[in-house]
Design a protein around this nucleic acid. Structure first.
Length: 295
DNA sequence: AAGCCGTGGCA
DNA sequence: TTGCCAAGGCT
């Protein structure tokens, strides 16, 4: 990307904006544990932070350390997950806590590589935890960062459908070299994407780099790439799985099959979804006709 | 590597 | 109402 002076200006503006406007989220507190950061990153996957915060507080109070969660039944994690969505994340969090106890002395590992070895942790989460919990200058690329760079640098309304090598390289090249600035930059760009450079209705009037933004300078041209295919919902297995799990969450003990069969209009589909939930470890069959969250 | 995996708010 | 989108990961 741009020559050094332009890049330095970008860093100064974005980092300065973040210091003024960044949200005071609990996992951003200086005294928040790495476990708290780890929890927040997994909960935030594909999930608005407004929904994450109350659940995060409950979990931190109930399971303040990896060891505490590892001691709980996986089903307790699934129930406490509530309706955050993608409940397999709750299961993986429980598994990750177990791995931390067994292989990392009960601590969240501090390297990108070790973090990547944990269930439910991919490139983004590993980088985010290494950076936000341990100060490592990893390249953090999430949907917000991708959108900000697509606009500010590439002059496009949205990034490509999938993360490309070129995008990762661009993100790396845009990061400040100095360690502390790099750490602030990572949160700051994400925050800018979350609050100002949003997907729909970007608030360019409030953007600290509007006069440096390639997309804004080009007159904010419309997105011209391939259509982003939205995911269907009504009638899908995901909807039925969600309904089955919700019934098990709200029940306190085992639930008989008869109370699950009408979780969707198609009984065959419901049975298929029940099987897939069992296969995923989200549901435990006590017999052919009684089910509960995994104990 | 495209498709699947929840849920709810907002335009 | 319908579709889009949200601090992605896994197969």
């Amino acid at each position: 990307m741009p020559p050094g002076a332009r890049l330095a200006e970008l860093h100064a503006r974005v980092n300065g904006w973040y210091v003024r406007e960044g949200r005071d989220l609990p996992w951003r507190d200086a005294d928040c544990s790495p476990w708290g950061v780890f929890l927040s990153e997994v909960m935030a996957q594909q999930t608005p932070l407004s929904r994450v915060e109350p659940v995060w507080r409950e979990w931190m109070e109930r399971w303040p350390t990896p060891a505490a969660l590892a001691t709980a039944a996986p089903g307790d994690a699934v129930r406490a997950w509530g309706r955050l969505g993608y409940p397999r994340r709750a299961l993986r969090l429980h598994e990750a806590a177990t791995v931390m106890v067994e292989r990392h002395g009960g601590n969240v590992p501090d390297s990108h590589e070790e973090l990547l070895g944990l269930p439910g942790v991919g490139a983004y989460t590993a980088a985010a935890v290494a950076c936000f919990a341990f100060g490592e200058p990893e390249v953090v690329v999430d949907t917000n960062v991708r959108r900000v760079l697509a606009r500010a640098v590439e002059g496009r309304a949205f990034p490509h459908l999938t993360l490309t090598r070129a995008e990762s390289a661009l993100a790396r090249d845009c990061m400040p070299l100095e360690r502390e600035r790099a750490n602030t930059w990572n949160v700051a760009v994400m925050e800018l994407g979350a609050l100002v450079c949003v997907a729909r209705g970007p608030r360019c009037e409030d953007c600290p780099v509007a006069d440096l933004c390639a997309w804004n300078l080009a007159g904010r041209p419309a997105y011209d790439g391939p259509a982003r295919r939205g995911q269907a919902w009504h009638g899908t297995d995901r909807q039925v799985r969600g309904e089955i799990l919700q019934r098990l969450r709200t029940a306190h003990g085992p639930v008989v099959l008869g109370l699950l069969e009408d979780a969707g209009p198609d009984r065959a589909q419901v049975m298929r979804c029940l099987d897939s939930l069992v296969a995923d470890g989200l549901v435990e069959p006590l017999s052919r006709k009684r089910f509960r969250l995994p104990g």
